[in-house]
Design a protein around this nucleic acid. Structure first.
Length: 724
DNA sequence: CTGGGCATCT
DNA sequence: AGATGCC
């Protein structure tokens, strides 16, 4: 009895203290200054938000890949002429992020540098971290490769009901502006539980992935992020609502506020606003006239530490891109070769992802003496289906071969190659990624995921305390490790990683040797350039003798600009006729260095030991999932990135059923079983339509994604379940 | 001598 | 398509 009374009191206390954070976005009394710390109307319960920030992430990954680097006092990660990050030993000697290599070596001549331009390993490890966090709670939002937000409100509430002894425990880690030991956890039970969860998750990341990092615990994303860096490295800090003013006031300038970047800070400075207080006391009206309503209000809120933006589950990336920068690129031939190289790598990544891109985009950066690091331009176009299909199907070389002309076409829309030009960057990007039917055996399907992911470990979780008869909604957010992530991540661990960093691959691509057959080996660059010039001069007259033999969708104009080897290839029967012949594919395979069986001897592969760690890990923490009944009836739980596309029905194959991809699996799982069955049988009678969703307005998509993350409300059922 | 890659908003 | 922001 006494216990429950006390718990109620704690609840009230925390509710009162949460008033600060739950101010309506509209900032009713925009009174400046002191009003900051006055409570305003509370509309919703306070959240518990975690922010994880891995320590010098790239450096940690490299030290894991090559443990010898641990002995070395310093390790920097170099991209082009920049040290993008370095370990803490190096930082103690004065190195900072984004320092030039020249400056860095001047400060410490013994600095060991590791090339970090290929992000493959960082990307893989980054997704493993997100995956691990998601296995505890699906509300995880990525920010870059090394940061994750997590909304653990429901996990905290669940623990709150199961933690009888709130008096006898304390905070884990630091408490901002307090001596941690002096803070009574019973005054802030939710924050205290949040600090415990953060500690457990950091420990899990360390045990299973070998990475250390910081965490911040607070009531919104802004504060969690700000506070996570209070103690570095490998520590965590909780921000109590009562210290909200302290941390926001500690920021040295507006630029430090996440969400206020270079440009915005400049414009603010033009208004005479530099400090947090400047903006707090600046009239909202004047701000609106400068930035518009939404932006102005958002900034006003940020500087009083109000941030009601939800933790939006990130899921699979919406675009994949690959880019390279350089001092100067001034010839069409170089552009073509670089584009081909980038595409080769990008297509392979796309293939591992398993989805099919519907849109291609080419981005360039032109050199200009003044505004050097701006002025990116891009053009995009749809990818013809017959080309796009080759990417998930594994015909990588075919795909690249046909995408290169597409890219060159876009290039010529931006650059007049008759006039001199000077590029400093090329980026190729796939977007509008479509999940394809899983019938294709391979990466896109569930089968490969299972063959890799199934392990006896799962039985552990179901034995734990799951008598929680009441809240299905809370438990439905709980997932098992095994079903947590898109197979892309797992795929990366089970296949040898092939990247463009292989010198042989790079050279081959550069010289076009991978494309050539023996008969064209003798082609010289001079001939090629002549051909390019010729093509430029009469680009309007493309009535060449060979163009009528071109494969469909190859622009004759672009064809002229291709290296002769590629022209020959395109004219081979394999491409002129629709079906690839064995001769072409075999000749391509024999000369392509980065097919799996020809690849270079790899350096010790990190993914293997990690996988073992995950599978064999002993979880000393709370079981990640306390209830399994809901999970068992979740059809899409096996396909970890739920696809919620709008428009026509497309279907995803699950282990034992098909259903529309625009169905939110979380919502679906919460329906009564008989309703599930009814819907299933209804869907089964419809035919899969693989059309592009057309009849929707752009801009709806992001909203859908956000709504989907919080799915589970009755009114969202209609939205997701009615195909209309 | 300012990287590479993602997202959102307009 | 571009601008901006985050790491």
């Amino acid at each position: 009895m006494g216990d429950s009374e006390e718990e109620l009191e704690e609840d009230d206390t925390e509710w009162r203290s949460s008033f600060l954070d739950s101010a309506a976005p509209a900032v009713p009394a925009a009174a400046p200054g002191p009003s900051l710390c006055k409570p305003s109307a509370a509309t919703s319960a306070q959240r518990v938000i975690l922010h994880f920030d891995l320590d010098c992430f790239y450096a940690q990954v490299e030290m894991i890949r090559n443990p010898a680097l641990r002995e070395v006092p310093l390790a920097g990660i170099q991209q082009k002429y920049i040290i993008v990050t370095c370990n803490y030993v190096a930082r103690d000697l004065g190195l900072t992020k984004l320092m030039s290599v020249i400056d860095a070596k001047e400060k410490c001549p013994q600095l060991v540098l590791v090339k970090g331009e290929d992000l493959t390993h960082y990307r893989e490890m980054s997704y493993k971290v997100t995956e691990l966090l998601m296995s505890y709670c699906p509300l995880v939002e990525r920010l870059g490769f090394d940061e994750n937000f997590m909304d653990v409100t429901e996990m905290v509430e669940r623990r709150l009901t199961q933690t009888p002894d709130l008096n006898n425990f304390s905070f884990t880690g630091h408490v901002y502006n307090h001596i941690s030991a002096n803070v009574k956890a019973s005054d802030h039970p939710r924050m205290a539980l949040g600090s415990h969860i953060a500690a457990e998750l950091r420990e899990a990341i360390h045990n299973k992935l070998g990475l250390t990092g910081c965490a911040g615990i607070a009531t919104n994303k802004l504060l969690a992020k700000l506070v996570s860096g209070a103690f570095k490295p490998n520590q965590q800090t909780t921000l109590l609502p009562e210290n909200l003013c302290d941390i926001i006031g500690s920021l040295s300038s507006l630029r430090k506020v996440p969400g206020i970047g270079h440009q915005t800070a400049k414009r603010l400075q033009a208004l005479g606003l530099v400090s947090i207080q400047d903006l707090q006391s600046f009239p909202l009206k004047d701000l609106v006239s400068e930035f518009g309503g939404p932006s102005a209000q958002r900034m006003k809120n940020l500087v009083i530490a109000v941030d009601d933006s939800p933790v939006t589950p990130t899921g699979a990336p919406q675009s994949l891109s690959d880019e390279d920068s350089f001092k100067k690129m001034a010839s069409t031939k170089d552009v073509l070769q670089k584009t081909q190289q980038l595409l080769s790598s990008l297509v392979e990544r796309m293939n591992k992802d398993g989805r099919q891109p519907l849109t291609f985009r080419l981005t360039i950066r032109r050199y200009s003496p003044t505004n050097k690091w701006f002025s990116r331009e891009s053009k995009q176009c749809p990818i013809p289906n017959h080309i796009g299909q080759k990417i998930p199907s594994g015909s990588r070389d075919d795909a690249v071969l046909q995408l290169v002309p597409l890219a060159m076409k876009l290039f010529h829309k931006m650059v007049d190659s008759n006039a001199p030009f000077h590029l400093t960057l090329i980026n190729v990007c796939f977007s509008n990624l479509q999940t394809r039917g899983a019938a294709v055996s391979g990466k896109g399907s569930i089968t490969s995921f299972f063959s890799h992911g199934t392990s006896p470990r799962k039985t552990q979780t179901s034995s734990s305390q799951s008598q929680n008869g009441s809240s299905q909604a809370a438990d439905s957010h709980c997932m098992d490790h095994q079903f947590s992530m898109h197979n892309m991540v797992t795929q990366h661990t089970s296949q040898m990683t092939v990247t463009t960093e292989s010198p042989s691959s790079y050279e081959a691509a550069l010289h076009g040797s991978r494309w050539k057959q023996s008969s064209v080996v003798a082609v010289k660059d001079t001939r090629l350039q002549t051909a390019c010039r010729a093509a430029r001069s009469d680009s309007d007259e493309t009535s060449n003798t060979v163009t009528h033999r071109l494969p469909p969708n190859v622009d004759p104009e672009v064809f002229e600009l291709l290296p002769e080897e590629i022209q020959v290839e395109l004219l081979s029967p394999a491409y002129v006729n629709s079906s690839p012949s064995t001769s072409t594919s075999s000749s391509a395979q024999a000369t392509v260095p980065d097919v799996p069986h020809i690849q270079k001897a790899p350096s010790p592969e990190p993914s293997q030991p990690f996988t073992e760690n995950i599978e064999g890990a002993v979880n000393e923490l709370d079981p990640p999932c306390r209830a399994t009944t809901v999970n068992n009836q979740r059809p899409l739980a096996t396909s970890a990135f739920p696809v919620r596309e709008e428009g026509r029905l497309s279907f995803v194959e699950s282990s034992d059923c098909k259903f529309p991809v625009n169905v939110d699996p979380e919502v679906f799982s919460e329906l009564p079983p008989d309703v599930q069955r009814e819907l299933m049988s209804e869907w089964k009678q419809q035919k899969p339509v693989l059309k592009v969703p057309s009849s929707r307005k752009p801009g709806r998509k992001t909203k859908d994604r956000k709504a989907a993350g919080k799915g589970g409300q009755a009114n969202s059922l209609f939205k997701y379940f009615k195909p209309t």
